[in-house]
Design a protein around this nucleic acid. Sequence first.
DNA 1: CTCCAACGTTGGCGATACCCACGTTACACG
DNA 2: CGTGTAACGTGGGTATCGCCAACGTTGGAG
Lengths: 167, 167
Amino acid sequence: MAAEPKARTAPAAPEAPPSPSPSPEPALARVQALPSWLLNRASARGRRLVTEALARDGMRMAHHAVLSAVADLGPVAQAELGRTTGFDPKDMVGLLNDLQAQDLVSRAPDPADRRKNAITITPAGRRRLAKLAELGDEANEALLAPLTPAERTLFVALLTRVVEGDD
Amino acid sequence: MAAEPKARTAPAAPEAPPSPSPSPEPALARVQALPSWLLNRASARGRRLVTEALARDGMRMAHHAVLSAVADLGPVAQAELGRTTGFDPKDMVGLLNDLQAQDLVSRAPDPADRRKNAITITPAGRRRLAKLAELGDEANEALLAPLTPAERTLFVALLTRVVEGDD
DNA sequence: CTCCAACGTTGGCGATACCCACGTTACACG
DNA sequence: CGTGTAACGTGGGTATCGCCAACGTTGGAG
């Protein structure tokens, strides 16, 4: 059954869409060339680089992002931070606990709305933020090391459009 | 302390490299423009798309990858699969359990080396693989929807080089 | 005044990615 | 021919990440 009508030297199945052997061979290569696969690997590498870069300061990527958001948005509520950075309110609590424990932000009840906490960055927080930005840039430069400067900007541009694809 | 020496209408700090306020304002925008940040978000989106695409078959991205590897490498040991796909041997056990439970692969002791399991894809596995590849392609097309065909190939090429950066 | 929505917080779940320890088996070296 | 080293598959355990459910508190709209 299913003999080889035209047995050649190369085991190539020219066309046979319905039945088995739809692809010549490299099913693995196909999967590993999938954008979703590549993005996963690249993301893992980036996370690893950033993580070990910020680990020296006892911080994680999330801390950097939240601290940046606090710096920008002045006194701001946790929920608002969660919306702008994309973190879950639950996780925001822990992140701010960490930042507050190191006096990088202050958490005071908002007098105008006592449900909210007014998060503000401290001078030490600003200093730390500058350092974190530097470390983050270093890690990202290592991440994009295989690309030329022109390719990097192009890569970031394409990546941005892919990310904005889900609105 | 630390009053506002120059209270203007716009809080712009032109230049002051060594001390605080190294950037005018958008610290958050800087973080969110970092390749590591973008890769994280893009990867999450891709994973979500692929996950929900393969969920209809009760499979995950890892199953697709492993099944592809088995299809390519013929009868192959689990450790070899782990090396080529990048999965931990521990996790490979569970993945193969899932695939075997659905008769997509067969797991037999290798007569030549009784430490190893000879993993082989079944006819049902080949059929399923074709379907998985189709679903995976659909999800990836949705992922790269914001890009033109030319941009997609370029994007994949750049991504590949970034991934290969860690050798 | 009453009801609904938002806030911060706690607890928990599922997936991913690791790392270590164990018994089994193969192989190389003395 | 032993003997030790290493690889294999497997189970157990840990850390992080993203998410959802519930609850008490507070603000605001009707």
